[in-house]
Simulated assay, not measured.
Amino acid sequence: MLIEVIADTLSDALIAQEAGAGRIELVTGLAEGGLTPGCGVIERVCRELRIPVNVMIRPHSRGFCYSEEDIEIMIQDIKMCNKSGAAGVVFGVLTPDHQVHNDHLKRLIDAAGGLDITFHRAFDEADDQFAALEVIKEYPQISRILTSGGQSSAADASERLKRLHELTADSHLKIMAGAGLSVDNIKVFLDEVPVTEVHFGTGVRVESSYEYAINAERVQALKKMIGA
């Protein structure tokens, strides 16, 4: 079981690493759902951490349908992440009618040049998640989909997530459950949805809020509970 933790500062990333997280999703703009961090943060975190750092590639918070200029900027950011030593990148692209945007996706994948790729929670805004899954499965470069099963909390979408997990069992693709998971509900959730990667944000923070730092004890407790 791999625990991925959201971090927006070097100190948060170091706390998560020392507490036992298996991977960091590095972002800024947590109140906006996560945006691409600045170059300095990316370079420093990637240099100082021993565990993989996957960087959010999201130029703004106005949805996941991007202009040509947005895509060009995202490509530039991806290339910078590659040079900075990031393990991977995290992105998702949709059309105006909430389908996976194949052209944009292909261009971002090409820019990644072998980096680990997560298709993020843009997936939760797809018009048809099962159709979107079949499209994403066509790209062997994509390692996983981060999803809450279309609900605000993954804990409320166990049936959907279990089905998505089953549909990826014979593929290169993994379902990583995220949003609303915590020490309080993770055991029951995993008993129902046997995913092998889980993603935590506020669930591992002091006061369960992005206004506060990562709580090492919560990460350690999760690690102990789920055998990560």
Rank of each mutant, 00 (worst) to 15 (best):
I71N: 05
L26V: 08
G178H: 11
E207T: 00
V100P: 02
D128A: 05
E4F: 02
L164N: 04
M56Y: 07
I226L: 04
A154N: 11
A21N: 05
L146T: 05
D124S: 07
Y139C: 12
G85C: 01
N215T: 06
A21I: 09
G201C: 05
T147E: 10
D191M: 10
N102W: 01
L164K: 07
A86R: 05
A111I: 09
L30M: 15
K79C: 14
L222V: 00
G22R: 00
G201I: 04
C65M: 02
E25M: 05
K106P: 00
G92V: 08
I6P: 00
V204K: 00
V45R: 07
G20C: 12
G203P: 11
V5T: 10
R50L: 08
H101G: 05
I71R: 13
H199K: 01
S182M: 01
R47P: 00
E72Y: 01
A179C: 14
K83M: 02
Q99S: 14
F91K: 01
L173S: 12
L164Q: 10
I6E: 00
L105N: 07
D70E: 09
M74H: 04
D103F: 10
V135Y: 02
V53S: 11
L108H: 10
K83F: 03
F91L: 06
S153I: 02
I109F: 03
A111H: 03
V90E: 02
S208C: 02
A132Q: 09
S67Q: 11
D97H: 12
T28W: 08
L190T: 10
S143K: 13
A216N: 08
M56A: 00
D103V: 14
A87W: 06
A86I: 07
D116P: 00
A155T: 00
P194M: 07
M56K: 00
T36R: 03
F123C: 11
E197K: 00
K187F: 02
A131F: 01
V219C: 08
I75L: 08
E125K: 12
P52G: 12
E159W: 01
A179H: 03
D8E: 14
D156K: 13
L105A: 05
A154W: 10
V188R: 05
V219I: 15
A213E: 15
E68A: 06
Q17T: 07
E68T: 04
T9I: 08
I117V: 12
R107A: 10
E72R: 14
L167D: 11
G180F: 13
V41D: 12
L164A: 05
E217Y: 10
F64R: 10
R205G: 01
P140F: 02
K174F: 15
A157K: 06
V55R: 02
N215M: 07
V93E: 03
V41I: 15
F64T: 06
S182F: 02
L190G: 12
P59E: 07
A126N: 01
K137M: 15
D127C: 02
T118M: 01
A131W: 03
F119Q: 02
C46S: 13
Q129L: 12
S11A: 13
L14G: 05
I214L: 13
C81G: 11
Y66F: 15
R47Q: 05
D184I: 04
I175N: 06
A221M: 04
V206W: 07
N54H: 04
D77E: 15
V45I: 08
Q151A: 15
